[in-house]
Each structure stands twice: as structure tokens, then as C-alpha cells.
């Protein structure tokens, strides 16, 4: 099928994509690395000088940086926990026979299609606002003091908002995986006298493992970069209570205009993401062969 001729044609067809992605990835990245070794502040009118590892030292010894790593981890792990556990339960529920499956499915996946700025602002104002939000109205109706979510539990509130956005994704993937479960195998196990519980743990759970892994890896990639939700709700605060690595780099570079330190932070973020990506790629690569 593949002749010498078609091979050459194929190279030409792939080339534009490869060149574009290469430029998109390498040129800015190399520039960021270069900047990260400079003393380069846009607001200070002095010549840019070589800074060695000063920017990295500044970033790594900054208390906010350590805090931002912890906040990022809290968001990633918190959202993963809620969406994976919630997603499994929801997928199991929706995989059972009931009336109106199609409609419920549509309702459940809807939040995934809501743009991040909308979901964050709607939760912030219409639900979590301590004066006019729905939770405040409910609390007052029941005779309690309204709770100011975003100032008293900012990180948890953000985890809640982001989890609401990602729960549909986890549910949909786990449900898809459940539906591809081999029915005959289940029946055979049932006939051999396997109980509901043992069928769940020995057939369903191993089958779901792969889907759960995929959910965890893909969500981690997106969750490490959560930005818009923080930008429109807390702007990293109160104080630095919700400053993540992404947000910190943004603050350093485009608010304080410290290009050098911002770049160093960006490179640290890239290294952290690469550690996750390494495992993700191995996982997806394995599936490619199957």
C-alpha cells in the first residue's frame, strides 16, 4: 500500500503541523528559560543584566511560592477526590435502568460546557455571596448566620466550584467505560453464584481502573493550570490564601512586571507539569498499542 511515492507525500502532509507545534513549543520555552536568568524588570528603567540563578533562588525561597505549591496540590487533590469518588457513584447510578436516562445524562454533563468565568462568578455571587447569595438566604431562613465562603474558606470554595465543573467529565468517562463492561461475563459470574459485591469488586472495579487512571491523568493536567476561576473570584486572596503556581507566575510577570522572576516561576511550573505528563504519556502510549 505505502509506496515510496506516498511516503514522501505523507511527510509533506505532516510537516506543517510538526513545524508549527515545534515553533509553538520550543521558541517561547527557550525564551522563557533565557529570561529566567536575567534581571529584567519592565517597571525599572535600567539595563537588563545577567542574574544567574538569582531568580530561581528568589522564587524558591519565597514563602508565597511554597504556599502556592501547597494550594495547587490542594486544588488538584481535592478536586480529583471529589470528582473520582462522585463520578464513580454517579456513573454506577446512571448505569442502572431508570426512566429518562437520556435527560438525566444531559443534566449531569451540562456544567462541563459552562465557561470557567461564568461558573466561577455564578457560584461566587448567586450562591456563595454572604448577603445576596442563595446559601445566605437559606441560612437566614433557617435562623443561622450566613457563611462567607470565599473569605472564610476560600480554598475549599474554589475546590467546590472547580469540582462542579469537572464532575460531569469524570462521570461521563466512567459511565462510558461501565457501558462497555462485558454483560456475558457478568451473567456467567452471576450463574456461578458470585454475589453482587464480589461481582462489583472482581469485575467492575478492575474494568474501571483504566478509565479512572485516564480521568486522573487528564484532569491533573487541566487542574494544575486552573486560572480563570481564581482570577475572577478571589484574585489569589484573601492575602495569598488561593494563590496557585499559575496565578503566582501571572502576578509576578504581568502585574509586577518582573519578567525574570516570573519566567523562573514559569519554568518551575513546566518542570512540575512534566513530571505529571511523563506518567500520563506512558499511560496513553500504552493504550495506543491496544
Amino acid at each position: 500500500m505505502a509506496t515510496q511515492h506516498s511516503r514522501i507525500a505523507a511527510r509533506f502532509m505532516v510537516a506543517p503541523s510538526v513545524v508549527l507545534l515545534f515553533l509553538w513549543m520550543i521558541v517561547p520555552l527557550v525564551t522563557t528559560i533565557y529570561f529566567s536568568f536575567l534581571d529584567y524588570k519592565l517597571l525599572v528603567p535600567k539595563p537588563t543584566t545577567w542574574a544567574g540563578f538569582d531568580n530561581y533562588y528568589y522564587f524558591l525561597t519565597d514563602r508565597t511560592f511554597i504556599a502556592s505549591i501547597l494550594h495547587t496540590l490542594a486544588i488538584v487533590l481535592g478536586v480529583l477526590f471529589i470528582t473520582v469518588v462522585g463520578g464513580i457513584l454517579l456513573a454506577l447510578l446512571m448505569n442502572m435502568p431508570f426512566w429518562g436516562q437520556g435527560i438525566v445524562r444531559v443534566l449531569v454533563i451540562a456544567p462541563f460546557f459552562v465557561m470557567p468565568t461564568v461558573s466561577a462568578l455564578v457560584w461566587k455571587n448567586m450562591f456563595m455571596n454572604p448577603v445576596n447569595g442563595m446559601f445566605a438566604h437559606i441560612a437566614k431562613g433557617l435562623g443561622f448566620q450566613p457563611f462567607d465562603f470565599l473569605s472564610q474558606a476560600p480554598l475549599l470554595s474554589i475546590i467546590g466550584i472547580v469540582a462542579w465543573q469537572w464532575l460531569p467529565f469524570a462521570t461521563l468517562i466512567l459511565l462510558t467505560s461501565l457501558q462497555s463492561l462485558d454483560g456475558e461475563q457478568q451473567e456467567a459470574a452471576e450463574m456461578d453464584g458470585a454475589s453482587v459485591l464480589s461481582r462489583f469488586f472482581y469485575l467492575t472495579v478492575p474494568h474501571l481502573t483504566r478509565a479512572v487512571t485516564v480521568v486522573i491523568l487528564i484532569q491533573t493536567i487541566f487542574l494544575l493550570a486552573v486560572f480563570a476561576e481564581i482570577y475572577v473570584t478571589t484574585a489569589g486572596g484573601p492575602g495569598t490564601a488561593t494563590t496557585t503556581i499559575s496565578y503566582l507566575v501571572y502576578m509576578q510577570s504581568l502585574v509586577k512586571y518582573d519578567v525574570g522572576a516570573g519566567s523562573a516561576g514559569g519554568i518551575i511550573a513546566v518542570i512540575l507539569a512534566n513530571i505529571v505528563a511523563f506518567f500520563a504519556m506512558r499511560m496513553i502510549g500504552k493504550n495506543l498499542d491496544a
Partner: peptide, 28 residues
């Protein structure tokens, strides 16, 4: 349709560009 020896590596590499955090290339 015309997979070569490196097709799989190429696909994986393309995917890896998605995993680069945006803040790493924001400033340039």
C-alpha cells in the same frame, strides 16, 4: 494511512505539547 516507524512517537510528541503549562510560555 501511511504510518512510518516514527508515527507513534510523533503523535505522542504532539500530545505532549498540550501538557505544557501556559504560564511557561506566557511572558515571551
Amino acid at each position: 494511512f501511511v504510518p512510518g516507524k516514527r508515527t507513534k512517537d510523533l503523535l505522542m510528541w504532539m500530545l505532549s505539547t498540550k501538557m505544557m503549562p501556559a504560564v511557561g510560555v506566557l511572558i515571551p
